[in-house]
């Protein structure tokens, strides 16, 4: 009978070993399959053509066989509130040029702090650029690029892109600014924000928010106060 002891012990060990090995092999082979399918190339490169909004000057790009990527266009030149009301009770707003065409700009004003007559109290946290880095002294209803070229308010992204190259590059690749609609342009259109949809040009940092939606986990009833 004592011979049994050795036999049994080795059978136990072998059985366990065999079980473990079989499991590992099957897991390994399923890994290999996964890896294989992951590396699979596109059967036909042309079936999915991704379009990039490469130029901001044109807001809607259409290429054959793909749906458009639409960048929301900023509204035109801003209107300035006058605090007056017309006979219908509507607020009276004026174009920038209404005042600026009659007054020559004070080139001494570089920051909002020195604005004591108009625009006083304006918040400005956009680095050290001055007003006329972006606003066009020749025509206040438009903007200007760093090289002095005029650019419309509706094409503000060209202006932003001068300094914010990396963000612009990300944006062009769909990695900045979010999107709505279709990820696959062969199936449907896509809508994107422009810079000033999310960033106030004078205080460009994304605003703070209050979270409004929280999971009501069961355990919170007991321990919300503690953690």
């Amino acid at each position: 009978m004592s011979g049994w002891r050795g036999v049994i012990t080795s059978v136990i060990l072998l059985a366990m070993l065999a079980g473990v090995t079989a499991t590992m092999q099957i897991r390994a082979s399923s890994d290999a399959e996964d890896g294989g399918s992951g590396a699979e190339a596109l059967p036909d490169g042309s079936s999915v053509i991704h379009e990039k909004p490469s130029a901001v000057s044109s807001n809607t790009l259409v290429q054959p066989e793909t749906f458009p990527v639409t960048v929301r266009k900023p509204s035109g030149p801003p209107r300035v509130a006058t605090n007056l009301k017309d006979i219908h009770g509507e607020a009276v707003t004026v174009a920038c040029s209404t005042c600026h065409s009659t007054r020559s700009p004070n080139l001494q004003n570089k920051t909002p702090h020195s604005l004591d007559e108009f625009h006083s109290g304006m918040k400005f946290t956009h680095g050290t650029v001055s007003c006329l880095s972006c606003h066009n002294a020749a025509d206040y209803d438009s903007l200007q690029l760093a090289d002095g070229h005029r650019v419309e308010f509706t094409d503000v992204m060209t202006l932003c892109g001068q300094c914010h190259g990396p963000q612009m590059k990300d944006y062009e690749h769909g990695v900045h600014g979010g999107l709505n609609g279709y990820w696959d342009l062969s199936r449907g259109p896509q809508q994107k924000n422009n810079c000033v949809d999310c960033h106030n040009p004078h205080t460009p940092q994304f605003p703070k928010m209050q979270p409004t939606f929280k999971p009501k986990d069961r355990f919170l009833e007991q321990s919300r106060s503690e953690h």
Binding site: G178, N180, Y182, W183, R187, C198
Partner: peptide
Amino acid sequence: REGRAPACQEACPTG
């Protein structure tokens, strides 16, 4: 699978 973006991506205000 119909080519649309997932709901969480569309909802993200920060992109």
